[in-house]
Design a protein around this nucleic acid. Structure first.
Lengths: 123, 123
DNA sequence: AATGGTAGTTCGGTTTTGTCGAACTATCCA
DNA sequence: TGGATAGTTCGACAAAACCGAACTACCATT
């Protein structure tokens, strides 16, 4: 086949950022996504950032430090479960909590987990 | 050392069945324990059995079949997280949901997860 | 107190899942 | 076109899940 002149660069965006529709959320996946202190900390940060926040700043706000690849993987798990939506804004990837989708699919679930998380931190 | 005449057989019971006190529950452990369809099914069964239910019957009521060792391990994870209390009754091990302890430590958490689980099943 | 039966745990080997550095891709700016 | 920044993917290694087999605990009978 002939060589591609320039790699069409939106293909990879589509490949990396697939978000499940709310009706396909699986409870087990959501609980697994939140059953990790790092990811739960990320979600707590996201609740305070309705305008979205990028990966590196999420780590900083959570007071955590880790390799970029690990952070990326944590966000990937949150994304695949439906907890987070990510969209590119310029050079960075902005993450949003899918609070409404979660509330619609499993009412009260996220709120009670976040309550529990804050309670545990406060103790 | 001198040979033990008869192995003191309560030691192993203490070894196998250690239940954390409610104030030591970790949210991440509880979510991890419940982030598995099999264990979540077990917990749903336990909610309907306030008098406790043994391992084999829990599987049966959940409509599941698996090796004993796998079932044992699932209950071990639930136990270590604090979701379940197990006590020997004669030949069998009876499992109870620690609903009150969970409610005391993380109010509303278990209820919302069970609601979500039943909702997902019903759909 | 030996035998046998039932309930469940532990062990060992294999498979799956998580972690992290290195290389790669996407985007912006000069 | 080059350099800088943000994040993803790859590959190798480490940790955890799975299941059959062997083991322990308990009860009942003899």
């Amino acid at each position: 086949m002939p060589p591609q002149p320039v790699s069409s660069n939106f293909a990879s965006i589509i490949r990396t950022l697939h978000h499940p529709p709310a009706e396909n959320f699986k409870l087990a996946h959501i609980l697994h996504a939140l059953a990790d202190p790092v990811r739960l900390a990320f979600v707590r940060v996201l609740t305070a950032e309705p305008g979205g926040i990028n990966c590196a700043n999420t780590m900083a706000r959570a007071g955590l430090d880790m390799p970029k690849s690990t952070c990326s993987r944590h966000f990937q798990i949150l994304r695949k479960a439906g907890v987070v939506r990510s969209q590119r804004r310029g050079i960075e990837l902005i993450n949003f909590l899918r609070a409404d989708d979660l509330q619609g699919r499993f009412p009260g679930l996220l709120a009670s987990i976040l309550d529990a998380s804050r309670m545990e931190r406060a103790a």
